[in-house]
């Protein structure tokens, strides 16, 4: 049980395994797209892990990358169509990053490293947990960036307008893309730091 929960903190795909950073950071300027992105990745990761695990004994090793890419891109196309039909505004905001789930290293990494050698049930849980671990980082970064950068959360004004009247200013730097990287760097710092102390 413990190993399944690993991806949430100890083996977090972004913080420890350095996977899936690519598309993760660009969508975290606001909470809403971050949550949608996290959910999409979780769904794709879990289902593709399950499918690849089901057919793992029939895939010839030489062409496995292509097979994996085809399975993942089919799933991503479905997610993309669903998003366009239900959350059109968010889907516009995410633009190419939905498509980039295909090349998200978390998914390829889990398929290569886990689904090819484990049973379907375990793979499904593993995919789910890795997706959630990824989502967790996304959501934390997005909360900081949206709250400090535009004073809102999920598009609701949180910082009262009296603050602004007395001279409070939004931190415009938070909206800019580089800040996401610095925040993730800080998260890595906190995570590594706490882990060291708990292992001592």
């Amino acid at each position: 049980m413990k190993s399944y929960l690993g991806p949430l903190n100890r083996d977090n795909p972004i913080l420890t395994q350095t996977l899936g950073v690519c598309s993760a950071l660009a969508v975290t300027a606001q909470l809403k797209p971050a949550v949608v992105m996290a959910l999409s990745v979780t769904v794709v990761c879990a289902i593709s892990n399950l499918i690849i695990s089901l057919i793992r004994n029939t895939i010839p090793p030489r062409v496995r990358i292509i097979v994996q890419l085809l399975v993942v891109s089919t799933l991503v196309i479905m997610v993309d169509q669903v998003l366009q039909a239900t959350f059109y505004d968010v889907s516009k905001m995410l633009s190419v990053f939905v498509g980039l789930i295909i090349t998200n290293c978390i998914i390829m990494g889990r398929l290569e490293g886990f689904a090819l050698s484990h049973t379907p049930g375990a793979s499904l849980v593993d995919g789910l947990m890795n997706g959630l671990g990824y989502g967790l980082v996304l959501v934390v970064v997005a909360i900081f960036r949206e709250l400090l950068g535009s004073g809102t959360l999920w598009n609701h004004q949180l910082i009262p307008s009296s603050f602004y009247e007395s001279g409070y200013l939004n931190n415009g730097l938070m909206i800019l893309p580089p800040m996401a990287l610095i925040l993730v760097g800080g998260l890595v710092w906190i995570q590594q730091g706490t882990r060291k102390s708990s292992e001592k």
């Binding site: 730097l173 996401a180 990287l181 610095i182 760097g185 890595v188």
Partner: peptide
């Protein structure tokens, strides 16, 4: 560099700073 920040942590932060430079 502070121990827990070594490797990945500092890599993210440097990329962020470089990004600000590129802005």
């Amino acid at each position: 560099i502070p121990k827990p920040l070594e490797g990945k942590g500092i890599a993210y932060i440097i990329t962020g700073l470089l990004g600000i430079g590129f802005m």
